[in-house]
């Protein structure tokens, strides 16, 4: 069969969504960020809201997310994306507004902005990519770094005495009445990818209801700074991250 014979519309099982640009992603091969971007973009395409969506990128490895999504984008200062999302949504209530943040961004420097946007019940979607490390700056300890885990700033492993406990910010914000939908997902297997996409879709659709924050944590990897191959990183994620950050819904809209 020739290439042309294979690539026929009726044979097409997958294509890149036009909501992603042609720009080559700078993410390390095996990194979860790219997959999560794709899921969000597919949801935007499927909902037909490309012209109504405003995204907010963080400071972290996904700082350049705006180069990959073909939607209008605002790059926030480190941790301030929920404050940005608050203003954009309140000033443009008919738009779909989402933030995309790492763990350092959302759960350390931006903790106040995160908690207060959630507590005010801002009608936005928050995507939280937890890779238990500061990816962009070269693998320092994050608020979500597991006990015993080695990073550039806890080279002998995180200890409670020196560094306190890993922060389960998702459990924390699920307690707030301003959050409407809170879930923890992952993207390290095709099955998880499909589930995660459903959750992201739900989180975007919820904006139509004006009931508060829809929050999707994605337990992800950082194979580069975890200093593992991509396959090993995903295995490590399953064995170490998931027991501490169990997947599933933490808060679902009452039916």
């Amino acid at each position: 069969m020739t290439r042309e014979e294979i690539i026929k519309p009726e044979n097409l099982v997958y294509r890149r969504t036009p909501v992603l640009t042609d720009n080559i992603m700078h993410y390390c091969p095996g990194c979860g960020h790219g997959t999560i971007h794709r899921l969000i973009a597919e949801v935007i395409e499927e909902m037909g809201i490309q012209d109504k969506t405003i995204g907010i990128s963080p400071v972290g490895c996904s700082v350049l997310a705006y180069n990959y999504f073909d939607v209008d984008f605002v790059e926030a200062a480190h941790g301030r994306a929920p404050a940005c999302g608050t203003a954009i949504k309140r000033l443009n209530p008919d738009k779909y507004v989402f933030t995309y943040q790492g763990d350092g961004d959302l759960a350390a420097i931006g903790t106040a902005e995160t908690i207060h946007a959630c507590n005010r019940g801002e009608n936005i979607t928050m995507i939280f990519v937890n890779n238990a490390i500061y990816g962009m700056t070269g693998g320092q300890m994050a608020p979500t770094t597991l006990l015993g885990m080695k990073t550039a700033t806890c080279p002998y492993g995180r200890t409670v005495e020196a560094n306190g406990y890993p922060l389960k910010i998702t459990e924390l914000i699920a307690q707030l009445p301003g959050t409407y939908y809170v879930t923890r997902q992952a993207v390290f297997t095709p099955a998880h990818v499909r589930k995660c996409k459903k959750a992201i879709r739900q989180a975007f659709e919820n904006q139509n209801l004006k009931k508060g924050v829809s929050f999707v944590e994605v337990v992800s990897n950082c194979n580069s700074n975890w200093k593992m191959t991509a396959t090993k990183a995903n295995q490590w994620l399953e064995e170490n991250m998931l027991p501490f950050y169990p997947l599933g819904d933490l808060k679902t809209p009452e039916k």
Partner: peptide, 8 residues
């Protein structure tokens, strides 16, 4: 937060 709301 206020100044970042203004920024956005």
């Amino acid at each position: 937060a206020s100044i970042n709301m203004v920024y956005a």
